[in-house]
């Protein structure tokens, strides 16, 4: 797909021009505007403070003030928590999804595969926001879990399951799970099962076969799943907003707050731009990985 066909001239470029138009108008241009804003200063009533002398503003280094502010220990703690939450979410998703995907792709009888895949996809029919609200109903003090535990007499007083990091983690893992299962399924489905038999034939027991054959051969799916889960997780704000307490603020919430509550667009833009940079770096690393492996990207 990478080879360009010289005989067809400009036709391919014309054909992908709508994509470029959409990307340019709704992605690259806003990103550029955001970058510009991040160099500005907050006006008294929100908005931007007008710059009187651009030369002096640039020379004084004042345009980097927002970026300097993002390095405040208070914020660093938030980034660190976001990163940590995203890493744990991704790891948990991988741990839960691999057996699920393996079951659907390898173990389940062929006639049941489509049904199982449908079950993975069906939650998408409901808005993510609504599904996250549903978790509130499940986890709150009078919620499903507590009523069950109280009703069966396992506990005497309701547990506080909501508004903590655990609740955020549950929400994140729940929401991202399909994005891990599907790419894993795609690469497990292509796995030639005789290779597993060959491995056993050559003396490898099941764990050995898993690490030496199954994992290396499904690495494209694993990497794609990690990228697909990690990126939304690190920018997530809805889940932490609804299920988290004051102490579980993530980078996404910080950005949202700057725009919606603090009305400090320049600072919000700076944080958002940093986050975007992290995500872009990750995507570039992924592109490098697929190119090195000579595989087609799954994203």
């Amino acid at each position: 797909m990478r080879k360009s066909d010289s005989s067809s001239g400009r036709a391919p470029y014309l054909l992908i021009s709508p994509t470029w138009l959409v990307l340019g108008l709704f992605f690259i241009l806003p990103l550029f505007i955001m970058l510009m804003i991040s160099f500005g200063q907050r006006g008294t009533y929100g908005g931007l403070k007008p710059i009187v002398d651009l030369g002096a503003y640039l020379l004084s280094g004042e345009f980097l003030a927002n970026y300097r502010q993002t390095l405040d220990p208070l914020y660093l703690q938030i980034y660190w928590r976001s990163l940590w939450m995203a890493v744990v979410t991704t790891a948990l998703c991988l741990l839960i999804s691999y057996p699920v995907a393996y079951y659907i792709a390898v173990v389940a009888p062929a006639r049941r595969k489509n049904l199982l895949l449908a079950l993975v996809v069906i939650p998408f029919w409901t808005s993510f926001l609504i599904r996250t609200y549903a978790w509130m109903l499940v986890l709150r003090t009078e919620g499903l879990v507590n009523s069950l535990l109280l009703g069966t007499g396992i506990i005497d007083a309701p547990l506080s399951l909501l508004y903590n990091e655990m609740a955020v983690m549950i929400g994140l893992v729940y929401g991202e799970l399909p994005f891990m299962i599907l790419p894993l399924y795609a690469s497990l489905e292509k796995l030639d099962l005789t290779l597993l038999e060959a491995s056993g034939d050559l003396g490898a027991n099941h764990p050995s076969t898993f690490w030496r054959v199954t994992v290396p051969l499904t690495m494209p799916g694993i990497v794609a799943g990690i990228v697909l889960v990690f990126i939304p997780s690190i920018g997530q704000f809805v889940v932490s907003d609804l299920l988290g307490g004051a102490k579980s603020m993530l980078a996404g919430n910080l950005i949202q707050n700057q725009f919606a509550v603090a009305r400090n667009k320049p600072f919000g833009s700076a944080v958002a731009f940093e986050l975007t940079a992290v995500v872009l770096l990750l995507l570039m690393a992924y592109a490098w990985y697929t190119k090195r492996k000579g595989q087609e990207a799954m994203l």
């Binding site: 030639d192 005789t194 290779l195 038999e197 060959a198 491995s199 054959v213 290396p216 051969l217």
Partner: peptide, 9 residues
């Protein structure tokens, strides 16, 4: 094996 089942990686 009939398909040889060599490990492609």
């Amino acid at each position: 094996f009939q398909s040889y089942a060599l490990f492609p990686h």
